[in-house]
Each structure stands twice: as structure tokens, then as C-alpha cells.
Design a protein around this nucleic acid. Structure first.
Length: 576
RNA sequence: GACUCAGUAGCUCAGCUGGUAGAGCAUCUCCCUUUUAAGGAGAGGGUCCAGGGUUCGAGCCCCUGCUGAGUCACCA
């Protein structure tokens, strides 16, 4: 038996053996047919307690608590839907003389966390709780590790919750089992995808998949992860965006395409940044960003209704967000004017820089006009837009893939949807002028040469595609993780990713008897040396006389069937 | 990347001025036939994150490292 096991783990392993010795397979292969789910029972039993279906039910799930009172016990069974209380009466489940199933199997060898199947009938206890009285019970899977026991009282107070974020993220399976709200978060996440997919599909747009391994990482300004393809003997990059591929498909003649894209960026991690994250991007031909605003507000309203169960209102902290379309639309210039009283229109880069200094923003000389404006907006305006609001017409320097504004070439036809003071969606009238696009890429190349390691690469094939002609197109992207955070009320991106990236755990090295061979210990004495000293170095640090006495003492105590150790033998070990 | 905080039993956490490592739940034994954060009696369970240092003596003080969290910086 492994020395590193905790007492409770050893206990469970011996229960496992005990079950086997009773002829019970702790991991049976056969299907366990189930007639009801726990939630079913709770929702329907009290309305028609006399219905025939309650006389014979079968459920399966995990044992979450045991409350034993002599010849009767209560337990909680948790299936994928809810918990249901079980009542076990010794003489009911063991009608004959043999009380083993109750006294040994249930009381001694079943632990919290074990997966079982039960059959019986539903009744209501004196305390008024819907309960299954068990007539037969089968072990479906024995759990060898103790589950954290989280208790909840009538007022909903939680005791001894499993809260350590590190453990919750590393062992999400445990987190999901004992923390009910965690499952809900991921259900919301799934509903967001479903609602969007339905919205797009109803309008005839095609869900597509584009390369994750890309020879040129394009479509965004970010540092990529690099990998290497052996057969081609060339570097490949994990995509930082899928935009340029989706536009190629619009060139190819699709009316509208969308993709839920897992993107990767080799940058810092924090509460709102994960190295892998999911973005929904959609591109629709013959549309502009005004059309896309209409489309986006309809989408948002539908998504909100899906999450709330029909209402366009959604509570986040102290704010009630109203997703009813249409939303307010305000240009970036107007937004800055509104929040700071400063009009950027017609101002030179130097004037704007001066204003940014007055506003106490952290800026440096490398920042161009666009970057300065963005800084002012991000610091002074963004947090104020709580209700869904479109911010439109961004400076051209910040948007190398976006069409210039039809009325003012210093700006672009771009909007972001702000909700609760944060960006939720980003959209353009897409740039389809191949010559302008080439010039913008070349500007990026100059930034790259100046040391900006996030400037975009020039994608020659993408330019070739544009040269064949792309219809006027509007595209829109939504960060799905951050949207999931918004709708699940989470403030950390790790809470909406099942398995957030973490440094690998260090596996403690478990000493084995074999390692004592290195210290010259003969096979017969290695187990004893392990028990006494724990590891080889501990043994080596001792004098021969001390080892001699300790090991012989151990031999006597454990009544080992070995000849007593001689001092000169031990001295020989240590000479090696 | 900087700073702050944290790491003690399966889980949640105490641990005083440096002086034999504690509680609740969980586990084990015994009692108990409608309980529900069940209860009663008893017991066991620890690499105090790791490695150095100071000290007669370190969970506690100092240094280094590891892991995580938070704040900031960076970041379409």
C-alpha cells in the first residue's frame, strides 16, 4: 500500500476490498436503467403523490451525505439534475436474516462520493421532504478520494465551502460536484452560444471553420504562439484571430459566415485575459456598420431574453441593464465631448497630447493621435456607459482593417457596443479597397520595424483575395468569455473557462523501496528501510549503529520473518 | 513585469510575545427506526508549501524559491 495515502484514502481502499470480498463488483459494467431524475421527482411528486409512477422508481447518482440512526438512515443522492433524499430501513432492504447489505455495505463500506443506483418508492417524511424509500441498492462506482463536504442550512448559509481558487480550477470536477452555482455559470455560457447560433442560422448565415494553425497570424495586433510543423519543416502560428479567413469566404461568394473561434495570444494573464479565449465573428456581404448596429441590438436583446427566461432586463450588481433595442448611438468624438467637455475635432496631435496630460492620463511620446484619443476614451468615457450603447467612428490609426468613414477620412466606420462600462462587441464596415488595405499593412510593417512586436504581418494571399473583389461587407466580433462573465455575474475569466490555464502541479516524488538499492540495502530490508526512514537520504545521514538498531527494532515490532541484521552488514551498505 | 496578501488535518479555518500543533465538519468505534448543518459518547488523523538562516528552542522572526489570489502596469 502506498505510504502517501491519507488515512481516509486508505479507509476507502479497504472498503473497496471489503465490497469485493462480499462478492460485490465496485465497478460493474452493465447499464443502470433510470426511470426518473431527481428534479423530475421534486417538480411533480407533490402535485400527484398517488400516481402509480411513484411506486417503483429507479435513480442513480452520487451519495452526498449519510445520516445514520441505528436501523434506519437518511442519505442524499445527487444526480445530474438535483439532490433527492433517500430513506433506508434495515429490515426493508434486508427482509431476511442476512443484514449485510445494510449493516456492512451501506453503513460501513459506502462513503460520500460513491456512485450508486437505487430502486424504491417515493413518499413524504414527517418533516415534509420528498424522499425515496430504498428497496434495493447497487454500487455503481466506488470513490477513493474524500469529497469536500459542503453543507447548507435552511436559510441557505453555506458551511465549509470548497473555495480555494487554485484547487477549484485544478480540480474543476470537484468544484462542479460540490458548488452548485458553478454548473449554472457554464450552462449560461452554453446558452449564449445556442442563442447566437440560432439567431444566425435563422437568417441563413453559414457556420464555418477556418484554420487554427496559420502560416501568417493575422487579423489582430497581438503576439502569437509559435509552433513547428515537422513534415513541412516550417513554423506555424496559433491563430490570434480568424477575420482574414472569414473575409476570404465572403470573397468566395457566401452571403454571411460566422465562426466561434478559439484564439490564442501569447500575452499576460489576468482577471480578464486568458491565453486561449473564444470570439464569435460574423461577416455579412452587402451590409455596412449601420446595418450591423441594428443586427447587433436585435441579437443582444434575443440573447438577454434567452438567459433571463424572457425578459430584456438583466441585473448586474446595482445596475439593471435594459437590452431592449434600439440602443443609443454616439460617436467617439461626442462621447469624449460629453464626458470631458473637450472636442477633439480639428485638434492636432500635440493639442490632444496636451489635453491628455491635463486629464492626468499616463501617456508617452510614442503614442500617435489615434492612440491618445483611445486613451482618453478608455479612461474617461468607457466606464460611464452602463446601458447598452454604441460608440461609433474610431480614429483611423487604430483600425487597419476598417473602411474609412464615408464623410471624414480621419475616422473609420467602426462601432463598439458598450455594456456595463465594458466593450462587448466590435464591428466595422470592412475595408475592401485592396490598395488602401495594402497601404495600411505597410504602415503596420513600419510600426513593426520601430519595435512594435504586435503590429500586423502583411498577408499577401489576403490582399490577393481582396484584389479579386470583396463585396461591401460588415463584420462584427463578440468576446464570448467576457460575455459569459457579464451574464453569469463573474469578475474573473477563469470562472467561465472550465479548465483555465495554470502552471503544472509539481508531483511530489513518492519514495519507493527500490530506491534503497542505491544505498546498498538488500531487497529483503528495503520495505522496512522505507517505513523507518521515509527516503534514502534520511537513511544515509545516520550512523551504521543507529540504522542497525532501528531496523532490528522494526523487525521485532512488526515480527518480520527475516534473520536479524548484523552491524557489519549495515556498515557494508554504507561503504557503497 | 512591480507591489500586497495567502499557503497549517480530506474541507473551512484558529494558532497570543518564539516554548509539546488546535477547532468545526469529514473519518473510525459504540448508542439511536421519519432525520436534515441530525444527535450523544469515545478515538484516530499533520513533510505547518520547499530550502537555508537566527535561536537553547521556529507554524510564528530573517533570506531565497515555488504556487495561487488581489492591485497596478502591459495588452485588440
Amino acid at each position: 500500500m502506498n505510504q502517501q495515502l491519507s488515512e481516509q484514502e486508505k479507509q476507502r481502499r479497504s472498503s473497496l476490498e471489503a465490497l469485493r470480498n462480499l462478492g460485490i463488483d465496485p465497478y460493474p459494467a452493465a447499464e443502470y436503467p433510470v426511470s426518473h431524475y431527481a428534479q423530475d421527482v421534486h417538480e411533480r411528486y407533490q402535485k400527484s403523490p398517488d400516481a402509480g409512477e411513484w411506486k417503483e422508481v429507479s435513480l442513480s447518482g452520487r451519495l452526498m451525505t449519510k445520516r445514520i440512526m441505528g436501523k434506519a438512515s437518511f442519505a442524499d443522492l445527487m444526480d445530474s439534475t438535483a439532490r433527492l433524499q433517500l430513506y433506508l430501513n434495515r429490515d426493508e432492504i434486508c427482509p431476511g436474516e442476512d443484514k449485510t447489505l445494510y449493516n456492512d455495505v451501506f453503513k460501513k463500506h459506502l462513503d460520500i462520493g460513491d456512485i450508486i443506483g437505487v430502486k424504491g418508492f417515493i413518499f413524504t417524511t414527517r418533516m415534509g421532504e420528498t424522499t425515496l424509500q430504498v428497496s434495493s441498492l447497487q454500487v455503481l462506482s466506488k470513490s477513493l478520494r474524500p469529497l469536500p463536504v459542503v453543507k447548507r442550512d435552511e436559510e441557505g448559509h453555506v458551511y465549509d465551502a470548497f473555495t480555494d481558487p487554485e484547487q477549484r480550477y485544478r480540480m474543476r470536477y470537484v468544484d462542479l460536484l460540490v458548488n452548485d452555482h458553478v454548473k449554472r455559470t457554464f450552462e449560461i455560457r452554453s446558452q449564449l452560444f445556442q442563442a447566437m447560433r440560432r439567431f444566425f442560422d435563422e437568417r441563413g448565415y453559414l457556420e464555418v471553420e477556418t484554420p487554427i494553425l496559420q502560416p501568417i497570424p493575422g487579423g489582430a495586433a497581438a503576439r502569437p504562439f509559435v509552433t513547428h510543423h515537422n513534415a513541412l519543416d516550417m513554423p506555424l502560428y496559433l491563430r490570434i484571430a480568424n477575420e482574414l479567413y472569414l473575409k476570404r469566404l465572403i470573397v468566395g461568394g457566401y452571403e454571411g459566415v460566422y465562426e466561434f473561434s478559439k484564439d490564442f495570444r501569447n500575452e499576460g494573464m489576468d482577471r480578464s485575459h486568458s491565453p486561449e479565449f473564444t470570439v464569435m465573428e460574423i461577416y455579412v456581404a452587402y451590409k455596412d456598420y449601420f446595418w450591423m448596429m441594428d443586427f447587433t441590438e436585435q441579437l443582444s436583446e434575443q440573447v438577454a431574453r434567452r438567459i433571463t427566461g424572457g425578459s430584456p432586463h438583466f441585473q448586474v450588481g446595482e445596475n439593471t441593464l435594459d437590452f431592449t433595442a434600439p440602443y443609443r448611438r454616439i460617436s467617439m468624438r461626442e462621447a469624449i465631448l460629453e464626458q470631458t467637455g473637450y472636442d477633439i475635432e480639428g485638434q492636432s496631435e500635440e493639442q490632444i497630447r496636451q489635453k491628455a496630460r491635463e486629464l492626468d492620463l499616463e501617456i508617452d511620446d510614442s503614442m500617435g493621435k489615434g492612440k491618445l484619443i483611445d486613451e482618453i476614451f478608455g479612461e474617461k468615457c468607457e466606464p460611464h456607459y452602463i446601458q447598452p450603447t454604441f460608440i461609433t467612428d474610431y480614429p483611423v490609426e487604430m483600425s487597419p482593417l476598417c473602411k474609412r468613414h464615408r464623410k471624414n477620412p480621419d475616422y473609420t466606420e467602426r462601432f463598439e457596443l458598450m455594456v456595463n462600462g465594458k466593450e462587448v462587441a466590435n464591428a466595422y464596415s470592412e475595408l475592401n479597397d485592396p490598395l488602401d488595405q495594402r497601404a495600411r499593412f505597410e504602415e503596420q510593417l513600419r510600426l513593426s520595424e520601430k519595435g512594435d512586436d504586435e503590429a500586423m504581418f502583411i498577408d499577401q494571399d489576403f490582399l490577393r483575395a481582396l484584389e479579386y473583389g470583396m463585396p461591401p461587407t460588415s463584420g462584427m466580433g463578440i468576446g464570448m468569455d467576457r460575455l459569459a462573465m457579464l451574464f453569469s455575474g463573474q469578475s474573473s475569466i477563469q470562472e467561465v473557462l472550465f479548465f483555465p490555464q495554470m502552471r503544472p502541479e509539481k508531483q511530489p516524488e513518492i519514495p519507493t523501496p527500490e530506491q534503497f538499492a542505491a544505498a546498498g540495502v538488500p531487497p529483503a530490508w528495503r520495505q522496512a528501510a522505507l517505513e523507518v526512514y521515509g527516503d534514502v537520504d534520511a537513511l544515509r545521514s545516520q550512523k551504521a549503529t543507529q540504522i542497525h538498531q532501528k531496523l532490528n527494532g522494526y523487525r521485532k515490532k512488526k515480527k518480520l520473518d527475516l534473520p536479524a541484521l548484523q552491524l557489519d552488514e549495515v556498515e557494508k551498505w554504507l561503504q557503497n
